[in-house]
C-alpha cells in the first residue's frame, strides 16, 4: 500500500518538477487583455480590417497598432465594450454599407456579344472587356455574391443587389468586382447616382436605358451644389448632400435613385407669424415673405427637403403632394413645460 502511494507520488513529483522547469524555460507572455478582446471581436475572420484573423486583430487592438473603427462588422456595443477595456475613446460612426453603382438588369441593357465562357465576372472581363454593351456596367455573374461572407449581396436579373441589413461593409465585394462599381457609402446617404458609365450620353443611350447621359439636369436643380461631373458621370458629394432627392426627380433616365422619402412640397398656412426662420433656412430660396407677415412657398423652387417643416415652431407648414393633398400635418408646437408649483404654500 505504502509503496503504491509512494510510487505514484514519486512519479507525480518528478512530472511536476519537470513541468515547472519547462514552464519557466518555455514561458510565453499572453496578455490577458488580448483574450478579453478576442472574445468581443466577431470571430468571422473576414479580413475587412486587413488582418488574417480576428485574433490577430485583437492582438493589434491591445498593442495599439489598430483602431476599433477598422472592423466594420462589430456591433457598436462590442466596440464600446472594447473601448472600455482598452481605455480608449469611442465615437459612434455611421454604419457604412456597400452600394452597387449600376441599375443595368437584363431588361435595361444591350449586350456586345453572346458570352460563352467561364461564369465569373473577373473571367468575363478578360474577354473583349466584358459582354455588356456598357463597358462599366454590372456583369452579373456573381463574383461578389460568392465572396460575401455575410450573404448580403445577390445577383438578381443580371444585376448585383445589396441587402443593407446584412451588409457589414467588410469590403470584399468592393475588392473582387473587376469593374470597381461597388462602393462603400454611409447608410445616411440615401440618394445615389447608380451609374458608373464614363461614356458620352449618346453612347450610353445606345446601350442602356437607365444610364447617366450627362445631361446635367441634376446639377441645375441641386440647391446646395452637391453634384459634380467627372468623366461624363454625375457624382454626389455626400458631405454637401441634404438628401432632398431633387436630383433624382429631375433625372430623365432614372439613373439617380432616392432611397429616402417620400418627399413632399411645403405649404404654409395661416398660423404663420412671419418669423422668417423657414425662409432663412430654405436651401433653395423657395420661401419669400416680409417679417411678421404671411410667408409663401414657391412650389416650383421647393426641393422638398423638409427643412422648413422641421424648423417651424408655429404649426404653420404642412407637407403636401403634387396635387395639393396634405400628406403630413404641420409639426405640433413644442409644449412649454409649466414651472413646477412651489412646494407648500408660501407663508
Amino acid at each position: 500500500m505504502l509503496t503504491a502511494i509512494l510510487t505514484l507520488t514519486g512519479v507525480g513529483l518528478v512530472a511536476a518538477i519537470g513541468l515547472g522547469i519547462a514552464s519557466r524555460v518555455f514561458a510565453v507572455q499572453v496578455d490577458p487583455l488580448v483574450e478579453q478582446v478576442a472574445e468581443l471581436v466577431p470571430g468571422v475572420n473576414c479580413g475587412a480590417c486587413g488582418n488574417a484573423s480576428c485574433n490577430a486583430y485583437a492582438e493589434m487592438l491591445v498593442a495599439g497598432t489598430a483602431g476599433i473603427d477598422e472592423c466594420t462588422v462589430m456591433s457598436d456595443e462590442a466596440r464600446a465594450k472594447i473601448a472600455e477595456i482598452l481605455n480608449i475613446e469611442f465615437t459612434k460612426t455611421d454604419k457604412p454599407t456597400a452600394v452597387v453603382l449600376c441599375q443595368g438588369t437584363t431588361a435595361h441593357i444591350q449586350l456586345k456579344y453572346h458570352y460563352d465562357g467561364v461564369p465569373s465576372c473577373r473571367a468575363a472581363q478578360l474577354v473583349a472587356e466584358g459582354y455588356t454593351g456598357c463597358d462599366y456596367g454590372c456583369l452579373g455573374l456573381g463574383d461578389c455574391e460568392r465572396v460575401c461572407p455575410f450573404d448580403a449581396i445577390h445577383v438578381v436579373d443580371g444585376l448585383a443587389v445589396v441587402d443593407e441589413e446584412k451588409c457589414t461593409a467588410c469590403g470584399k465585394c468592393v475588392d473582387v468586382c473587376p469593374r470597381n462599381i461597388i462602393e462603400l457609402h454611409t447608410t445616411n446617404q440615401r440618394v445615389h447616382v447608380l451609374c458608373s458609365s464614363q461614356d458620352k450620353g449618346k453612347i450610353v443611350r445606345g446601350v442602356c436605358d437607365v444610364g447617366c447621359i450627362a445631361c446635367r439636369k441634376c446639377v441645375k436643380v441641386c440647391p446646395v451644389e452637391a453634384i459634380e461631373f467627372k468623366d461624363n458621370l454625375a457624382r454626389i458629394i455626400t458631405e454637401k448632400c441634404i438628401q432632398c432627392g431633387a436630383c433624382a426627380r429631375a433625372c430623365p433616365t432614372g439613373s439617380i435613385l432616392d432611397q429616402g422619402g417620400p418627399h413632399y412640397i411645403a405649404k404654409i398656412n395661416d398660423n404663420c407669424t412671419g418669423c422668417t426662420l423657414c425662409a432663412r433656412k430654405c436651401p433653395a430660396g423657395a420661401i419669400s415673405g416680409e417679417k411678421k407677415l404671411l410667408h409663401v412657398v414657391d412650389e416650383k423652387k421647393c426641393v422638398r427637403c423638409h427643412v422648413c417643416y422641421d424648423v417651424c415652431n408655429f404649426e404653420a407648414i404642412a407637407l403636401v403632394d403634387e396635387q395639393g393633398q396634405e400628406m403630413i400635418a404641420p409639426k405640433p408646437k413644442k409644449k412649454k413645460k409649466k414651472a413646477a408649483a412651489p412646494q407648500g404654500a408660501a407663508s
Binding site: 465562357g117 467561364v118 465569373s120 473577373r122 473571367a123 478578360l126 474577354v127
Partner: peptide, 13 residues
C-alpha cells in the same frame, strides 16, 4: 470545360 479561360483568369489574378 473552358480550360484556357480558367487558366487565363488564373494568370490575370
Amino acid at each position: 470545360i473552358k480550360l484556357v479561360h480558367w487558366i487565363r483568369f488564373g494568370k490575370a489574378e
